[in-house]
């Protein structure tokens, strides 16, 4: 039944109807999803600016609203940056699966013959690259603006580098569960915020420890452990959440 590939019309269909199908591996599928999401994000880059602008605004307004005193700002800087990063993530979280749900791409995603949790992991990775990484890149500038000790910058950056992927991964569970709801935004925040608190505590705690001259390896290791734990567990939960949302 295998006909010449170039023959037109019906014989082309014959090839498709009966030929043995070779699928790309799971890594190729994941990479394909990451590339598609990055391309889509690039085409809609003005949407990405929204959480970033929010992040910058919160941090610049803080000294105006509370106190512009140098010693106070230096001690509050890490906490302010972490809280703003957390809220900025929360702000963009709903968009993670929303567009795909509305145009049917999510149904097609579920039908890809690969383990769904790995495909979801690919989507979350792309999401982190376009929402988490810009936050990390902006934070040194904002930290210096808040008079954070320059020697603490590497610690802050490392804590954000380990922490923001955890925020994206945990958030994916909430986004997957609420994507089928018409007004899921508030529910999403309520579901996810309690799970964000440990990340926030360890993230700011690491920088505080460094500021007090204490060793940071312990809390960094804890952040790393949180990231690994989130990496291996949350994709399963998010995939299950997506199945539930699609089924309703």
């Amino acid at each position: 039944m295998l006909e010449d590939r170039k023959s037109p019309g019906i014989s082309q269909t014959a090839r498709s109807a009966t030929a043995h199908i070779e699928n790309p591996g799971v890594l190729a599928s994941m990479l394909g999803i990451i590339r598609r999401d990055l391309l889509l994000a690039f085409r809609r880059r003005q949407d990405l600016a929204n959480p970033l602008v929010f992040f910058v605004i919160v941090i610049t307004l803080f000294p105006l609203g509370v106190s512009p005193e140098k010693s106070f700002l230096a001690s509050a800087a890490a906490g302010v940056i972490w809280v703003a990063a957390l809220l900025a993530t929360l702000l963009s979280l709903d968009s993670l699966f929303r567009a795909d749900y509305e145009d049917g791409a999510l149904e097609q995603l579920l039908l890809i013959p690969q383990p769904l949790f790995l495909l979801v992991l690919g989507k979350v990775l792309a999401y982190w690259l376009v929402t988490g990484v810009p936050l990390i890149l902006l934070s040194p500038l904002l930290a210096i603006m808040l008079h954070l000790d320059v020697q603490l910058l590497p610690v802050l950056l490392l804590s954000l580098l380990l922490g923001t992927p955890v925020l994206s991964l945990i958030g994916a569970i909430g986004a997957a569960l609420t994507v089928g709801l018409r007004f899921g935004g508030v529910l999403l925040s309520l579901l996810i915020l309690p799970l964000y608190i440990p990340v926030l505590i360890f993230g700011t705690g690491t920088v505080q420890a460094a500021a007090n001259g204490m060793p940071v390896q312990g809390s960094m290791a804890m952040m790393g452990a949180l990231l690994l734990f989130a990496l291996v567990t949350t994709p399963f939960a998010a995939a299950a959440g997506l199945r539930i949302s699609i089924a309703n």
Binding site: I21, E22, N23, P24, A28, S29, G32, I33, R35, R36, L39, L40, R43, R44, A99, D100, E102, D103, G104, A105, L106, E107, Q108, L111, I112, P113, Q114, L119
Partner: peptide
Amino acid sequence: FLGHKTGIKGDLTPLENLKHWSNARL
């Protein structure tokens, strides 16, 4: 499977849509 909602992305071209649909499959 082709449903009511096809998963076609308005921000992508038909070629990109088809390419990214097929990337994960064939």
